[in-house]
């Protein structure tokens, strides 16, 4: 849940990038970090294993303008995708204001996508959240690879809520900011409605 720091006149919102292992969550954050104005971003903290796999989380604080004199700071997180880091994923999801589900478009990763989506629902439920009721955006990543599923099929399998979804090639930045803008917008709308 977003945290309003009255003394700093700041609103902190938490967005979590979720998805199966190697789907490109970290790549999303890396691209955002690389292309964001230095004054608007903090350090990208990546806790990775020796093989560059996310060990705990990636974290990127971003300032995205003002709302009624309050600076809005978005804390972007990724979760580790590998199955055995479920405890980490649960912890990172705590207090999330919005979730971006990064799906791997490759045919052979479809099962991993579905498992990860189920895992997301379960973990959110443990925190008392309902995925169907919170700001949620889907990104179909790795669209540049040859063995990808058609978007229509991905949509059918993953986007039952008909939330905003985007095709992406995160390594090249395609769809990265569109995804971020969409989730930020949903989170802010939710914030206003409260």
């Amino acid at each position: 849940m977003s945290f309003i720091n009255y003394s700093a006149r700041e609103i902190n919102c938490k967005i979590v990038y979720y998805g199966p292992g190697l789907c490109g969550k970290t790549t999303n954050l890396q691209y955002i970090y690389a292309k964001t104005n230095p004054s608007a971003k903090g350090k990208l903290i990546s806790l990775a294993t020796e093989t560059e796999r996310t060990l705990f989380f990636d974290f990127l604080p971003l300032s995205l303008g003002d709302i009624k004199g309050f600076k809005t700071r978005f804390h972007l997180y990724t979760v580790p995708g590998q199955v055995f880091y479920d405890a980490s994923r649960k912890l990172i999801l705590k207090g999330a204001d919005g979730v971006v589900f990064v799906a791997d478009s490759q045919i052979e990763r479809m099962e991993a996508n579905l498992e990860s989506l189920d895992n997301l629902k379960i973990n959110l439920k443990e925190h008392g959240f309902d995925l169907d009721k919170m700001p949620f955006v889907i990104q179909y990543n790795k669209r540049d690879l040859p063995n990808v599923m058609p978007v229509a099929e991905l949509r059918k399998a993953l986007n039952y809520r008909n939330v905003p979804d985007f095709e992406a090639v995160a390594s090249k930045g395609v769809g990265v900011f569109e995804t971020l803008k969409a989730i930020a917008k949903l989170v802010l709308l939710e914030l206003k409605s409260r």
């Binding site: 902190n12 804390h75 990172i92």
Partner: peptide
């Protein structure tokens, strides 16, 4: 920032 991240969690 990291303190904020830990607090969030």
């Amino acid at each position: 920032d990291l303190g904020c991240a830990y607090k969030d969690m």
